[in-house]
Design a protein around this nucleic acid. Structure first.
Length: 735
DNA sequence: AGCACGCCGACT
DNA sequence: GTCGGCGTGCTC
């Protein structure tokens, strides 16, 4: 097999000593490597094995029969077969599919599956003490009696627990073991509590019940994609919970992808309320131990429902029966670095390979998904009425050109009045500004110097709370200087433009009695912090949240009646083809936070561009008209989803070498009907983390197999190893 | 991804 | 004279 392509046999054959087999290792190699099954060893396709590679030992996966062009004499023996369940066939097929599509090595994709190497080793067994069947004759003391009584009534347990519960010293327990009354037993770790599909759920409205019934049927019906489209509060979650329940009844596993698991405290509570147990969680905040246990529980099929961020898609579920992608439009499902993929799209692929249904849920579906629903590839389930019977909040558009805030301030008179009114009524408010820190630019009044990042083409953002300037791209950080670094002028530096911290300052000045909390990735560093914020908000310990996009997702705050969008225009510039769509999704989601239950809400949107289609659509609530206009514009320009794109970012430390490589790539660009290559152009961040970057963009018609074209293109253009080319099929982020 | 090999600058 | 920089190539 060698450097040729990988191919996994569908059958799970077994191989005995001497057999030649192909092993995929989690390294960016072109294909599988062949090995010889060692004497006395037997392995099957999908087994995790340890193999010698060069002078180290590496864990890989048996991928199928060997048969490359490497001489049999050069083959080395497998070192060991690891005590873990084999990688399921659908997972192996998924690895290959994703590798081919993203134009990355299959080993790089396998690395995402094998994210917890230690999970492949034998799980640590818990040593517990149990009663020996015929108890030998011993001298009985009261303490000994208490210990033994505990074990007659209850399950075997660890020695220290036993001693503590029986209120005896450890020596009493040890003595009983020595006397042969107790015996040490090794037990596998306890399985997590199982979600119960039959537990009482919430009562569904007729339209919800109808959608739930369709999804329950779908769970039994193989591959299909369902779009669950409904505004916030329409009960999407409750509806797909019924699909999960049906999946559990069938004895299969369910996977739920959420954008920001850190903010899923409310989601987790709803899940536990419905199913009586917590799901397995998978996200970046997990510690190593928890990670290992969860990976293992998933692989062994003991975890029945997994909820996680995009990387959860690569968990080796052996009995997967359903995938839900909630908030499917969310841009955080797109991974831009390393293996660049969109978790929503790959979830659909995983569902197809596993012959199971996928549910894409959103209040503001992406244009891709809307178009797929229109063409009949996906089935649309619309949830019309709002669960709580509250109409969507009316939107007031503030034209900042006429309704101006005072100089150096950012809240218009209308928004200030709205806040005052909300506080007077005892309601809560939310101010949204998608910009962390105090000021995005620090400028010298004397000489005009702007404080920039030395590694990136970007300004440093002032974070006044911690007294530092930070680069949001590479993390470069320095203490806020007292004087201009360029001309040395004292007190010359001023922060320009608003960030969240400056809005908080303005609020404190205007409403000294208002209790507020700042919600950004700086302040909400994990699930615990998010949970605390939710609790303080629910208990009305705070009147106002001032936050970035981190607050846009899935909260219900009954007392929240006013949402103020400080600068609706922020996302609209920047030459991103999805900017308008994204801004519309984000702003309508934020605006939808206002008014739940019995308190009507309102949204106030500040803008310099009141006539922009995004703002107009927000004001009128006419999503369909906006999507239609956006679709027409993209179709006209052959942009996704009507055309296909691939981005190549050429990066390296040496600018001249980067330029040369980028020009070489452009020179070798594919000459194929319907394919065009643009560039090289300086990437929008021409310098990032100390690397110079140039971008080439390939556009093509829908019918073109872009991945194959790009793979051939790169293979035909040799580049020095000091140049890194990042390939992004269907790019989202143009920075 | 690692790790070795190899060929050119400043040092115990 | 060597220690060590990182460019290039290989790992079944």
């Amino acid at each position: 097999m060698g450097e040729s392509q990988v191919s996994a046999g569908p059958q799970r054959g077994t191989y005995g000593p001497g057999a030649r087999i192909a092993v995929l290792v989690p390294l960016p190699l072109a294909g599988t490597y062949d090995y010889r099954v060692a004497d006395g060893m037997e392995v099957g396709v999908g087994d995790f094995v340890e193999v010698p590679l060069g002078r180290r030992q590496i864990v890989g996966v048996v991928w199928g029969p060997g048969g490359g062009d490497v001489d049999a004499g050069r083959l080395r023996d497998l070192s060991a077969r690891l005590p873990a369940p084999p990688l399921p066939e659908a997972s192996r097929a998924f690895v290959e599919w994703v590798a081919a599509y993203t134009v990355h090595a299959p080993g790089s994709v396998l690395r995402m599956v094998m994210s917890v190497p230690s999970a492949l080793m034998a799980p640590r067994l818990a040593r517990v003490l149990a009663l020996e069947a015929p108890a030998p004759e011993i001298r009985w003391t009261a303490a000994r009696r208490r210990v033994v009584d505990l074990l007659i009534d209850g399950p075997p347990r660890p020695a220290n627990e036993l001693a503590q519960e029986a209120a005896v010293g450890p020596s009493v327990v040890a003595g009983l073991v020595h006397a042969g009354v107790l015996r040490a037993v090794e037990l596998p770790p306890p399985s997590p509590d199982q979600p119960d599909p039959e537990r009482f759920g919430v009562r569904l409205s007729p339209s919800q019940a109808e959608a739930a019934e369709i999804l329950r049927t779908a769970v039994r019906g193989g591959f299909a994609v369902y779009v669950l489209d409904g505004v916030a509060g329409s009960g999407k979650t409750e509806v797909y919970f019924e699909a999960i329940a049906e999946t559990l009844r069938l004895g299969r596993q369910a996977l739920v992808l959420l954008p920001e698991i850190a903010l899923g405290a409310q989601w987790l509570r709803r899940f536990s309320d419905r199913f009586g147990a917590a799901p397995a969680e998978w996200h970046s905040d997990l510690g190593v131990g928890e990670r290992r246990r969860t990976w293992r529980a998933v692989a062994e099929g003991r975890a029945r429902v997994v909820v996680g961020a995009r990387s959860a898609l690569f968990l080796p579920c052996p009995e997967l029966g359903l995938i839900v992608v909630d908030e499917e439009h969310d841009p955080s499902f797109k991974q831009d670095d390393g293996v660049a993929y969109h978790a929503r799209d790959m979830a659909v692929v995983r569902a197809r390979l596993g012959q199971l249904p996928a549910i894409l849920a959103s209040a503001t579906p992406s244009l891709e998904t809307v178009v797929n629903a229109q063409t009949g590839r996906y089935r649309l389930l619309h949830l019309p009425d709002r669960h709580t019977r509250t109409p969507p909040p009316p939107v007031t558009v503030v034209d900042l050109r006429s309704d101006r805030p005072p100089t150096g301030r950012y809240l218009s008179p209308t928004l200030r009045a709205g806040l005052a009114e909300a506080f007077a009524k005892g309601s809560q408010a939310l101010l949204f500004l998608n910009r962390r820190g105090y000021a995005p630019l620090t400028l010298c009044r004397a000489c005009g110097f702007r404080v920039c990042c030395p590694n990136c083409t970007a300004w440093l953002v002032e974070h006044r709370m911690i007294g530092r300037l930070q680069c949001h791209h590479c993390g470069h950080s320095l203490k806020t200087p007292d004087r201009c670094p360029s001309c040395g002028q004292d007190d010359g530096l001023v922060g320009c433009g608003p960030g969240i911290e400056r809005i908080a300052e303005e609020v404190a000045e205007q409403f000294p009695d208002a209790r507020y909390a700042i919600a950004t990735s700086d302040t909400l560093t994990g699930p615990a912090a998010a949970k605390l914020l939710v609790q303080r908000m629910e208990e009305h310990q705070i009147d106002l949240i001032i936050g970035t996009q981190i607050v846009a997702k899935g909260y219900h705050f009954p007392l929240l009646t006013l949402v103020g969008i400080v600068d609706a225009d922020l996302g609209l510039s920047g030459g991103d083809l999805r900017a308008a769509e994204r801004t519309f999704q984000l702003l309508s989601q934020v605006a939808g936070r206002a008014g739940r239950a019995d308190r009507p809400g309102r949204a106030i949107v500040q803008t310099h561009l009141p006539e922009h289609p995004v703002i107009a659509a927000l004001a009128t609530g006419n999503r369909e008209a906006f999507l239609a206009a956006e679709a027409a514009a993209r179709q006209e320009a052959w942009l996704p989803p009507f055309g296909r794109m691939a981005a190549l970012i050429v990066a390296g430390a040496d600018e001249a070498a980067v330029d040369k490589a980028a020009r070489a790539l452009a020179g070798g660009a594919p000459r194929i009907e319907g394919v065009r290559v643009w560039g090289p152009a300086p990437a929008p961040l021409a310098l990032l983390r100390g690397r110079h970057r140039r971008r080439l963009l390939l556009t093509a018609g829908r019918a073109v197999a872009v991945s194959a074209v790009v793979r051939r293109w790169l293979r035909s253009t040799p580049l020095p190893r000091s140049i890194h080319v990042q390939i992004d099929i269907d790019p989202y982020n143009f920075l």
